[in-house]
Simulated assay, not measured.
Amino acid sequence: MTNKTSTKKTRNALFMFVGMMLVALNLRPALTSVGPILKTIGDSLSLSSIGQGVLTTLPVLLLGLAAPLAPRAARKLGMERAVLVALIILGVAMIVRPYFGVSGLFLGTAVAGGCIGVMSVLLPGIVKRDFPESASLMTGIYTAVLCTGASIAAGATEPLRMAFDSAWQPALAFWAIPAVIAAVAWWLQLDGKQTPKTPNAPKKSLFKDKLAWQIAFYMGLQSSLAYTVFGWLPTILQDRGIEPVNAGLAVSVSILVQVPTAIAAPWIASHMRDQRAMVVLVMVATLTGIAGSIYAPIEGIWLWVIVLGLGQGGSFSIALTLLAVRARDADTAARLSGMAQSVGYTMAALGPLLVGVLHERFDSWNVAGIFLSVIGIGAIVAGLGAGRRLYVLDD
């Protein structure tokens, strides 16, 4: 009986792991597929730089605005079924958004961002509940898979557009396919399973906790840099003389090299006294890569996008790790995830938008580079507070 129970637990854990990886693969293509063809979309739909900035900002804003819906959905449906519903809606939005003009594009992008926001909030709680002894490692692995999905979408969307006779609509809709596959796989591993519903939220509010706010600010500021890179780096590189396909490839490479640091940074930090040193290291690498991409001679761009990717892979995985290791239990981790991502992503949405405004105003990327440096310094300050070995809601 014990062996059968152990085998069943192992099988369920394996199915959950595979399901989580497929979900993680879909947490960025809706965003990173737009940047490489942003200029083409802008020309096709007559969008200004500000309009393009709004398009890159919208899904990030919805990541934050939809985050509070995740705990409510989990209480009503259970965390796993809430993820399934979000996956299904994401797939529909990805199919629909390219084919209904400007309004359809913006609405579909917003819905996709909201679905990703819900899933992003729920996954740390599932990790904390199902893999409590290896939360940092699991977070690193699914962050690496997330980065892989983002990289593939960034690098393949422009070649897909060319393969579809220069039509950007099917190239954008193509990324609904991984969402459909993930939804089917997630549904199969839930078959017959009665997923537990989370209890009603306790009275203690994370919004009154200083450490929770520091985590939220770090999440938001590092995310602001990430989504600015997703949305604007292809355009920056094209303006500096790189062909669109190579610009998309550069972003793809930058995202792909996030994989090793996404895994390594939380693992190394777990063997250190706390996460503060790692926060500084990865953010300095991120700022160095951004500065090199904007200001350094264009001949060295491959070095700078690699440095940028290594920094951003580590900074994002550390942010997700903080959601798990700064909480004492799965329920608190889910609540912290909701609070930090709601505040953080809403704040992060200003990054791509303001970069678009600054470029429109000054017709140059130089001022935007200074603005991004200020964001990075703020992330270091917040991360030094969030990286301390403390727990939220401790008196």
Rank of each mutant, 00 (worst) to 15 (best):
C115Q: 13
S49M: 12
V54F: 06
L122D: 11
A82Q: 10
L105E: 02
G35K: 12
V102P: 00
G35I: 08
P36F: 00
P59W: 12
I50D: 07
E80N: 14
L90P: 03
L58A: 13
R28L: 01
I95Q: 12
L107I: 13
V54R: 02
R72M: 11
A93G: 04
S134H: 09
T57Y: 04
L38R: 01
T57D: 06
I116K: 11
I41H: 01
R75Y: 02
K76L: 13
I37T: 05
P124H: 07
I37Y: 00
K76A: 12
L137A: 10
R75K: 07
I126V: 15
V96M: 15
Y99K: 04
V83N: 14
A30L: 08
V34T: 14
G108K: 03
I95Y: 13
T56C: 05
V83Q: 13
R97Q: 08
I37C: 00
L137Q: 08
K128V: 11
A70G: 09
S120G: 15
G53R: 04
A73M: 15
L84Y: 10
P98A: 03
A135R: 08
R28M: 00
S33A: 15
R28S: 01
L62E: 07
T40A: 04
L55S: 11
G114H: 07
S44W: 05
S134E: 05
R72T: 12
A135C: 08
V96D: 09
P132Q: 10
I95F: 14
